[in-house]
Design a protein around this nucleic acid. Structure first.
Lengths: 142, 142
DNA sequence: ATCAATGCAAAGATTTTGCATCAAG
DNA sequence: CTTGATGCAAAATCTTTGCATTGAT
């Protein structure tokens, strides 16, 4: 489990406060690790422990968390953004997206270092993260 | 240059017709290869040679083209979908997205075959395409 | 006291849909 | 004729914004 001290610091660094709402949101996405919740889904869950919260607050909070690097904003092509906590890894892991049923699996391997180094040199680009999706058919659908 | 016969066939296979509107849209995105046009941008260009066309038609057409595999639908996190012709390659090339200025560069290298093979075996998943974005800072912004 | 954060409602933006009309086989 | 495709406008979604209020420091 991750310590709150770090998080608070991470927010403070950029001039943000750790309000009860933000903390509830953080709790929620940490408890639902690997689920890729959308903003509205997060809102629905958070409302249970924090009934007065507004949807706009969740939207604003997710923007901040993304900016600060607490979460990663995914696009799985279903019309809404989905979020995942970044577990202090500097790089995102990869995802398998089934183009039939839409299921999203996670891949543990990274293995892109070598490729990234090549690309950084050749294109004069400083890579801070990557986003890798493999599209295809999952076991059930193929 | 690609032949229209193939395209028409590709559409027909799935029961779609190659109408003048669809053809104009296809011309437009082929003439703007590498530009990642959004639906509205495509609409603006197509209107010049096809003034009676409606935005909804462009949206519907892009859905079909994506489904048929004529284009690839990108998300560069600017709030709209952007499209690119798939040059009969079975796999997408990669992109460098600058998180400061938003510029998108293309990477020619693929080099994911090995990783994909590993992943296919381990996760019992049949990969048909991939989507790889490297996030970071371009030459100007870093 | 100050200044950010919140909640609510309204506004924005992109995308989809309903429906009458058009076009092609 | 019949069926899909189109254009227009309206609707549906997701997301952002304006503003008065609240809440810490």
């Amino acid at each position: 489990m991750r310590e709150f001290g770090n998080l608070k610091e991470k927010l403070r660094e950029k001039g943000f406060k750790l309000t009860p709402q933000r903390r509830s949101i953080l709790d929620t996405i940490m408890e639902n690790e690997g689920k890729h919740l959308s903003t509205e889904e997060i809102y629905d869950v958070v409302k249970r422990r924090c009934p007065e919260i507004g949807l706009a607050t969740v939207y604003r909070t997710m923007q901040i968390f993304d900016e600060v690097g607490l979460v990663y904003k995914h696009n799985f092509d279903d019309g809404r953004s989905r979020y995942e906590v970044t577990n202090n890894e500097d790089h995102q892991h990869h995802h398998l997206v089934c183009i039939k049923c839409g299921k999203v699996l996670e891949v543990e391997e990274d293995l892109l270092e070598q490729l990234e180094n090549q690309v950084e040199q050749k294109y004069n680009f400083s890579i801070t993260n990557h986003n890798v999706k493999f599209l295809g058919y999952c076991g059930k659908c193929r």
